[in-house]
Design a protein around this nucleic acid. Structure first.
Lengths: 188, 188
DNA sequence: CGCCCCATGTAAGACGTTACATGATTGA
DNA sequence: TCAATCATGTAACGTCTTACATGGGGCG
């Protein structure tokens, strides 16, 4: 029914995984609990309602599989509408706010990007991130210099930790770009 | 009244800031919106209820200041009970789960550590983090090697991003330790 | 036969977001 | 006097967490 709502990160994670391979709620839970996507919840109280919402918005469709000697399970697939939504989310330019909140959502977008929007768009995403990070790191460094000298060492170090983390992310971005641009190709 | 509940990160952030300096809800909002603690919410709908909860748990106490030519404002102070709770939170050892979820909460703990529990305990905190990170980075590297070769490049790069981020955090930790241990001192 | 894993869900409660509401004071 | 800022809150809504509930199937 109603589609133009904003979807939480978990919803996009599910959408992206289902785009890779149709799966049941239980399968998806296992992905979250067993692989390194542990920052997302693997609890049934999060997954099943989220799948229900996506289905109500017609972004995925579930079909119940039931055979002799098989347990009943519902397998979800991404619809055309869902794929469009996923593409929109992945390809949108990186904003500063997105990075300030933490890189997790960006990482998720990028992880899916090649499969969903192709490597050209993935490279664009990286360029977008690079631009945002350059400015952000610069302004963080300025803030750092402006920090009061009387501040406790742990406060200053904590701030530095944030700066370094973003610097390291920027290096990763550039490294990823050279990796990628070395071997062009893939689909658009 | 009821104290042995678990406090969300925002609550500890408020507790830590108030320990540094008594302040009103509005002051605290400004800290979140103007400084680099932007990962925490600066919305009144988050701050004021959070302050209310802390006060109900007797971790802070608010006194209304009202003078001629002054706006009415309520200034909060950390109580003895609140300080104890803050210390407990800061000094507790780092767990792997805490790091998997992201370093933000640890950074917050560490930022306050020197002022609240002294530099000796701050150093202990860093050692605790170092241990956890060593193991975690090692296991991430093993996972990385075990990743299927047919994986799309963006997926592998996304994973590498996580590894690098934690490696960079580990370097920061060691750097912070040498910085700290160079100039001992501070209280307890 | 009993236990554990598969597989799905629901219910209660806590928390944050967004938006709205109120009123006093400062400055143009 | 009108707008912006100070300062405090409330209400509705959505989402996540934790815990509970249910049943079939494989295995010892």
């Amino acid at each position: 029914m109603s589609s133009p709502k904003q979807i939480p990160a978990l919803g996009y994670a599910l959408l992206g995984l289902l785009h890779g391979k149709p799966a049941s709620g239980y399968d998806l839970r296992k992905v979250f609990s067993s692989t390194s996507m542990k920052s997302y919840s693997d609890s049934p109280g999060a997954i099943y309602p989220a799948l229900g919402r996506l289905q109500k918005q017609e972004l995925i469709r579930g079909t119940i599989e039931e055979g002799a000697g098989m347990r009943r399970r519902q397998v979800f697939r991404v619809t055309a509408k869902g794929l469009a939504e996923l593409k929109k989310w992945i390809a949108r330019p990186v904003t500063r706010d997105e990075i300030v909140r933490g890189p997790q959502e960006f990482i998720l977008r990028f992880a899916f990007s090649e499969m969903v929007v192709g490597s050209a768009a993935a490279i664009e995403l990286l360029h977008s991130l690079e631009g945002v990070l350059q400015e952000y790191v610069t302004s963080l460094n300025e803030e750092l210099k402006a920090l009061p000298a009387m501040m406790p060492a742990s406060g200053r170090l904590a701030f530095e930790c944030g700066v370094r983390g973003n610097q390291s992310l920027l290096e990763w971005t550039r490294n990823a770009l050279t990796t990628y641009e070395g071997k062009k190709g893939g689909r658009s």
